[in-house]
Amino acid sequence: MSEKVIADFVARFTLDSFDSPEPVKGRIVLSRRRLVLATGDAKSQVALSDIFDVNVGYVPGDLESFFQDTVTIAHRTEGESRVAVIEAGSEEVSRFKTVLFKATLNGTRTHIKHPARVGGRVTDASFRRAKLAIEPGTVKFAAEEPLTVELANVTYFRKESRDGGPVIVLRHAEEGQPVTSEFALESERKLNLLGRYLRLEYSELAEKVEELTISEEEMEALVAVYSGARTGDLAGTLGLDSSRVTMLLNDLREKGLVDEGEKGLSLTAQGRLLVSDRIESVNT
């Protein structure tokens, strides 16, 4: 394979084109054009243009007993729908999933309407051309007026039909208020892949947040940080003494909800998701 390799590791996998449904150990090689699964005895190639779905954790019923942490890749080859299931450690699965989505989606020609709505108000925005780029937890659209959507700020998304074809409708918080954007991709296959990426990334964030127990006082502190309050401002903003604010921030750091870097106090992705949910409930 002459093209540049972007992932290369050893894992267990099974593929419809192999004789046995039981997983085998072999080499997984990914380029920007194809996925190769090879053992000492056999090799199979999947063109990225044939992939129509990627899932994490799901395994077809007849293979469920064989696998644990998995990436399941559905593809259409020679007119037939087939499935490849790859198993590796949870961190390796997460990295491979991201690289695979980037390889299949980055650079895709896109049309975006932003903002299609601000709160409940429909705007006069029209669709404009852009190029798609994804990163863990982020979707970016390179255009004359670029747009970056942090998935932690997303409160709603789904696929809908329009006169020009299907679109993804996505509602997210922007500068403290809910806005709605619409995205149309060059093919419905890629639109479905983007929808899957959004669901997987959002679900992963949401699961982490659901495991947390947050007091009302902690939530008020998160909202204040989201609104731009600095460490020295929080005591006055929250009406608390400085020692209580220090304890609150320590607890929020331990829960992975705030971080203090070179630019000062900020929310993590999980912290932004919690605040986005609060903003959405207040504005509904």
Rank of each mutant, 00 (worst) to 15 (best):
M1T: 07
M1Q: 08
S2C: 01
A7D: 03
F9E: 05
F9C: 01
V10R: 11
L15R: 02
D16T: 12
S17V: 09
F18M: 14
D19S: 11
D19Y: 11
S20T: 14
G26C: 11
L30K: 03
R33D: 14
L37Y: 00
A38K: 15
G40D: 15
A42D: 14
K43Q: 14
K43G: 02
K43S: 15
Q45Y: 09
L48T: 07
G61Y: 05
S65R: 11
F66D: 10
F67P: 08
A74E: 15
H75A: 14
R76T: 09
E78Y: 05
G79A: 12
G79P: 10
G79Q: 11
V83P: 06
E87C: 00
A88N: 12
F96S: 09
A103H: 03
G107D: 04
T108I: 08
T110P: 00
H114V: 12
A116F: 11
V118A: 10
D124I: 07
F127A: 13
F127C: 05
F127R: 08
R128I: 15
R128K: 13
R129F: 13
G137E: 06
T138H: 08
V139F: 04
K140N: 09
A142S: 09
P146Q: 09
L147S: 07
V149R: 04
E150R: 13
T155M: 06
Y156C: 00
K159R: 15
E160L: 15
S161N: 14
R162F: 03
R162G: 13
P166K: 01
V167I: 15
V167K: 00
I168E: 08
H172V: 02
H172P: 02
A173W: 00
A173D: 11
V179P: 04
V179T: 12
S181E: 14
S181F: 01
F183H: 03
L185Q: 07
E186Y: 04
L191E: 13
L193T: 10
E204W: 00
A206P: 01
K208V: 13
E211R: 15
T213W: 02
T213V: 12
E216N: 12
E217W: 02
E218K: 06
A224N: 10
V225G: 07
G228V: 05
A229V: 06
R230F: 00
A235W: 01
G236D: 15
T237Q: 08
G239C: 12
D241V: 09
D241F: 05
V245E: 09
T246E: 14
L252V: 07
L252T: 06
E254T: 12
K255D: 04
G256E: 06
V258Y: 05
G261Q: 10
K263F: 05
K263T: 10
G264R: 01
G264H: 05
L267C: 05
G271Q: 08
L274C: 12
S276N: 04
V282G: 04
